[in-house]
């Protein structure tokens, strides 16, 4: 592609053609890991779940992985719950902060900017500790007792990270809309709020989607950090299983097995993000 001849314009149009033409293969690319994941986990589940009963006999590595699969799957489900709830709450608050950060009231904008910078530049692990140590384990609000178990604290920690990043995405997207759009809308006698809600924000949505999905992927691969807080998600169960088996020949396969699970779920998200990014840059 580098050594291709012709002016840059030609290269761009060829690229556009290639990407729109190859889109069916891109979608296959996306589906293939999911299919593979389902097949592998089904096979393991069927083959090995009832071979655990014979006591006193050392199981093969593969059979041991199969034995722990249901427990790991349970943990993995919690990872999915954590990432989805964290993204939901974080996005909600992040959009509010992002709108405030692009407000025209200078003090508000400054304060929000400082807040966002601190949370954005802090490692996820530190934010998790922040949520774990600084939240009480239960709270009385108007006579109702609300308890914060570890996994809820983990969700709060992750949503702090999501919040700051979404705020930055929203602010960046609003800024990236050309000024001419504001001026054109003003000349058509729209009110300020109308311009914002009907003209600027709809244009932002398209720009926000790829970075938001990227954030989803990053947050998903950060969820095992919750194990450090003592949440029984997939990494917590992995450590537990390795401790219970205490066999060194199991360590490498077990970690690779869990890595594969994450890969099969995170890869489609990354892939889709790349496709959307290219599409929005070249055509939109």
């Amino acid at each position: 592609m580098i050594f291709s001849s012709g002016p840059p314009q030609a290269a761009v149009s060829r690229q556009t053609a290639r990407y729109s033409g190859a889109s069916r293969r891109e979608w296959l690319h996306l589906l293939y890991p999911i299919v593979l994941a389902t097949v592998i986990s089904m096979a393991l589940f069927v083959l090995f779940t009832d071979s655990t009963v014979r006591a006193g006999e050392k199981l093969s590595v593969l059979a041991t992985l199969g034995k722990w699969t249901p427990l790991l799957a349970q943990g993995f489900l919690l990872n999915l719950v954590i990432v989805n709830l964290a993204m939901a709450t974080g996005t909600l608050y992040g959009i509010c902060l992002g709108l405030l950060a692009s407000s025209h009231v200078v003090p508000v904008q400054r304060i929000v900017w400082i807040l966002v910078q601190f949370f954005r530049n802090t490692p996820t692990l530190v934010l998790l500790f922040l949520a774990a140590y600084m939240l009480p384990s239960s709270m009385h609000i108007l006579g109702v007792e609300i308890s914060f178990p570890d996994w809820v604290k983990a969700i709060i920690g992750f949503s702090l990270k999501v919040m700051a990043n979404v705020a930055e995405i929203v602010r960046g997207a609003i800024q990236s809309v050309p000024n001419a759009q504001w001026e054109a809308a003003e000349s058509l006698a729209f009110r300020r709020s109308q311009i914002f809600w009907r003209i600027i924000l709809p244009q932002c949505f398209k720009r926000m989607l790829p970075p938001w999905m990227n954030l989803y992927g990053v947050t998903f691969t950060a969820t095992p950090l919750a194990a450090i807080l003592g949440v029984n998600e997939v990494l917590g169960y992995t450590l537990m299983a390795l401790g219970a088996e205490s066999r060194f020949d199991l360590v490498v396969p077990m970690y690779l097995y869990v890595l594969c699970w994450f890969y099969l779920f995170a890869y489609p998200v990354t892939r889709l993000t790349q496709i959307l990014e290219r599409r929005f840059v070249l055509i939109g």
């Binding site: 992927g217 691969t221 950060a222 969820t223 095992p224 950090l225 194990a227 450090i228 990494l235 992995t238 490498v252 970690y255 690779l256 869990v258 890595l259 994450f262 890969y263 995170a266 890869y267 990354t270």
Partner: peptide
């Protein structure tokens, strides 16, 4: 790129 860095580190 697509797996958790913490599990990579443990690995």
């Amino acid at each position: 790129r697509n797996t958790p860095p913490i599990i990579q580190l443990y690995f």
